[in-house]
Design a protein around this nucleic acid. Structure first.
Lengths: 141, 141
DNA sequence: GCGATTATTTGGAATTGTTCCAATTCCAAG
DNA sequence: CTTGGAATTGGAACAATTCCAAATAATCGC
């Protein structure tokens, strides 16, 4: 009945983990979907407050952590700057523009991913791999 | 005259950047070379104190930062845990063992590095790329 | 060598991002 | 209802790092 489909998949994923779909979780997730610019927890907090003025920063951290657990959101770390969050579930690398500080998603073709995994010697069993570029982007995307 | 060759290349690199080879910098660097287990700043601090009991943590941070600037050492970040330092200058990825917390260097063949760089669309100019695996290692290395 | 200048080190305070905690509040089921 | 677990909240605590101002050390022009 709710026209916002994302909310349904959210509810489903949460239920799968035995968790509830609360307004806070829904708004945090929708904020991430709405503007996919890899916001920090503080930025998410600011955006969510527009809709839920009484939400606390702790709750934003809780919700983000929950979404990461449910694999609806990826936490992205670049050096020691604040963790950023992205709702892109396809395999992708990140490009960090040194000038602007902006982060871009770079799609990772399965073939490349496969080749990268080949570099692991016997005895190393990787559950995930993260690829991060840093440099300069003139792209508008 | 000094039989420790590393110290010479250190002196050289520092000089190239207009910096001095101080005892603190030399000992911090030698500690990294001696045990290449990706220590944190605190761990380096503890090891250096054996030789220079009066060194301060701030100086260890300074020295590490200097060595990173001179490209003698790489800073390695894994999620939000403390930065680790490694004196391995060859292109390599890192494998983070989720059980033990240990970090392993994984050599990166130029061909793989080249292919990874190919995923960047036009307009993205990368100055460096970082590849980090996470998983389980049974290796002894 | 000798003072002037600059680089480096030092200890402690400050900062930042995040987590913890104890006290509510909110649901959901019996 | 009411009882129990889940979730939220605000503020304190925390960990890693950086900042800062004072002390120390090295280097340079003379």
């Amino acid at each position: 009945m709710n026209p916002i489909l994302a909310s349904d998949s959210l509810t489903q994923r949460l239920a799968d983990s035995g968790l509830r779909a609360t307004p806070q979780r829904e708004v945090v997730y929708s904020v991430l979907l709405r503007k996919r610019d890899h916001p920090t927890a503080e930025e998410v907090f600011a955006r969510v407050k527009a809709e839920l003025p009484t939400i606390s920063l702790a709750t934003v951290y809780n919700c983000l952590e929950t979404l990461v657990q449910c694999e609806l959101v990826r936490a992205v770390n670049f050096e020691r700057s604040p963790t950023r969050y992205c709702p892109n579930l396809r395999p992708h690398a990140h490009f960090h523009d040194e000038q602007t500080g902006r982060t871009y998603d770079i799609d990772l073709p399965p073939a490349v991913l496969a080749e990268v995994n080949q570099v692991l010697p016997a005895g190393f069993d990787a559950s995930s791999v993260e690829i991060t570029f840093r440099g300069q982007a003139r792209a508008t995307s």
